[in-house]
Design a protein around this nucleic acid. Structure first.
Length: 489
RNA sequence: GGUCGGUUAACCGAGUGGUUAGGUAGCGGUCUGCAAAACCGUUUACGGCGGUUCGAAUCCGCCACCGACCUCCA
């Protein structure tokens, strides 16, 4: 199939036809999580956005190497926490080793990502496992004159870089303006300029996470890991770098500076950024009390949630908006998504039972074209979904005898819908995931509540019949004076 | 204060210089023991004020509001 995929490049601020550097191979790097707390909604957006991209590129038969890092190296906080990094802070609070905290939240992250049905990256490198690579990059930058050491810490010389390369092309920042309106922060005296950023930081005595280096016992600067690991696994130049819009500045801008200075050329061809998620119109923040983790969403245990939402509902909801738009979560919107998803999935079941006619009254080939047009247009999943719902309408309509489909078109429609829904959008049947303990509890309770009414009517044979049927499938009913207990055999 | 983005009907959310986005909800009907599902029909729009145009919600300007980012946190 001819590739007509256009993606919006944050660098050029326009949609560009995607052409891999070395087809059929595609290199994709996405900024992953910092594992110091539970995964939340903010993690779901980029994970699903770039999972969609990964799935679609794979569908187009590209050989994709998808690299997503885990940031497990503590970095300094700039607020009142005075040199204590986030992972350490959490470690003291929970009386755990820093790496124990990392492991715990990495496990949670992986569990949540599986629940959201995101595919595993090809490589998931950890910053702590690439200290050597990061140090080598620092050495190279010092050698080339783009970095300097002060008191055991190493900083990137942005002014020097700006002489040869233009800094700020991704975020639109101008260095001169930054210089004039930067606020004064503590510990800046080590730097030649306030906007220089750390490549290596000397660790304070309390700092637990530290590694030896030619400059000091310390730890790498945050921006460094992505430059070092993307180069290691994808080469000097690769196709796509993704991440949240909030990372555009300073993180990605600094990455560009580091990589360009070290390699003498730009390493990323397409930059893609997903937009943020708001809750009831507000940004998500712990201080606002609207911070919702994925586990809370899946269980419904949060004061802002009126019910639990399945991971597929969350995925579907995120796909119903375009990745570059902000997305607002609310119970009302999630419930709408839940019902929409149910409708979509039910149609697939109906499709399997559809009786073919001699001829067709709807154009499946046209529908297929429209679906590809939508996804090719910068992954326009909401438009794609609207066309898939057109397919749903065909199915129900044929089922009602209003429209007709011949057997070839039924097969074609089934192939089309299953390809897009399961393979590309990564949705799956709710049934596979909803059969959990609470669901069964509710189910049995519903049956037993009805049985209580039957018992009140003294319809003993029916009530015994229910007890017998449940017994056959391994559910034991224990009738008591006031209530009914049950257990699974 | 600076940079960038947004404001679409009850809710979420696409899109386009003139033609139904879609989902959910509402209303009327078909079907139905009841309900659900489904089908048919249908009601609420493009923040405000100007301008360009035969025509703008879509382009331009101003205003209002909202959001993200503004460096050593990741």
């Amino acid at each position: 199939m001819q590739n007509k995929l256009f993606i919006y490049n944050s660098l050029s601020k326009q949609k560009e036809l995607f052409k891999p550097l070395h087809a059929p191979f595609v290199g994709l790097y996405v900024c992953g999580p910092t594992v110091y707390s539970d995964a939340h909604l903010g993690h779901a957006r980029p994970a699903i956005t770039f999972d969609l991209l990964f799935r679609y590129l794979t569908h187009l038969e590209y050989k994709v190497r998808y690299v997503r890092n885990i940031t497990d190296v503590g970095h300094l906080e700039n607020d009142a926490d005075e040199g204590e990094d986030k992972i350490e802070k959490k470690a003291r609070f929970e009386h755990l080793e820093p790496m124990e905290v990392v492991q715990k939240y990495m496990n949670t992250f992986h569990k949540n990502m599986e629940q959201l049905n995101t595919l595993h990256p090809s490589i998931e490198p950890r910053a702590s496992g690439h200290i050597v690579e990061q140090q080598e990059l620092i050495k190279l930058l010092i050698k080339k004159g783009y970095a300097y050491e002060t008191n055991g810490s190493v900083y990137f010389d942005l002014l020097k870089y700006n002489e040869k390369y233009k800094y700020g092309k991704l975020s639109g920042r101008v260095l001169e303006e930054m210089q004039s309106n930067t606020r004064t922060l503590e510990g800046q005296d080590e730097k030649h300029n306030s906007f220089d950023f750390a490549l290596w930081k000397k660790a304070t005595p309390e700092h637990l996470m530290r590694w030896p280096s030619p400059w000091s016992d310390g730890f790498p600067g945050w921006h460094l890991e992505c430059s070092a690991m993307s180069t290691k696994y994808l080469g000097d130049e690769f196709d796509i770098h993704g991440g949240g819009m909030d990372l555009q500045f300073p993180h990605h801008e600094c990455e560009i500076a580091q990589s360009t200075a070290a390699l003498g050329k730009e390493s990323v061809k397409y930059w893609m950024h997903n937009n943020m998620i708001t809750i009831n119109g507000q940004k998500m923040a712990r201080s606002l009390g609207n911070f919702i983790t994925l586990d809370e969403l899946f269980s419904g245990k949060h004061k802002l949630l009126t019910q639990k939402y399945s991971s597929m509902t969350i995925r579907f909801f995120i796909l119903q908006a375009h990745y570059r738009s902000t997305l607002d979560f609310s119970n009302e919107a999630l419930q709408a998504a839940e019902k929409g998803l149910t409708r979509l999935m039910k149609a697939l079941e109906t499709l399997r039972k559809l009786k073919p006619s001699e001829s067709s009254t709807v154009d499946i080939k046209k529908l297929r074209e429209k679906c590809y047009e939508a996804i090719n247009d910068d992954l326009n999943s909401p438009i794609l979904l609207s066309f898939l719902f057109e397919g749903v309408k065909y199915i129900n309509s044929v089922n009602e005898g209003v429209d007709k489909l011949n057997s070839a078109d039924i097969e074609s429609l089934r192939n089309l819908l299953e390809t897009f829904i399961f393979e590309i959008l990564g949705l799956k049947s709710e049934k596979e995931i909803d059969i959990d303990k609470p669901f069964i509890d509710d189910l049995i309770d519903a049956i037993l509540n009805i049985r209580q009414i039957i018992k009140l009517n003294k319809d003993w044979s029916t009530s015994d019949k229910i007890r017998g049927e449940l017994n056959k499938i391994g559910i034991i009913i224990k009738d008591k004076k006031e209530e009914v207990d049950w257990e699974i055999e």
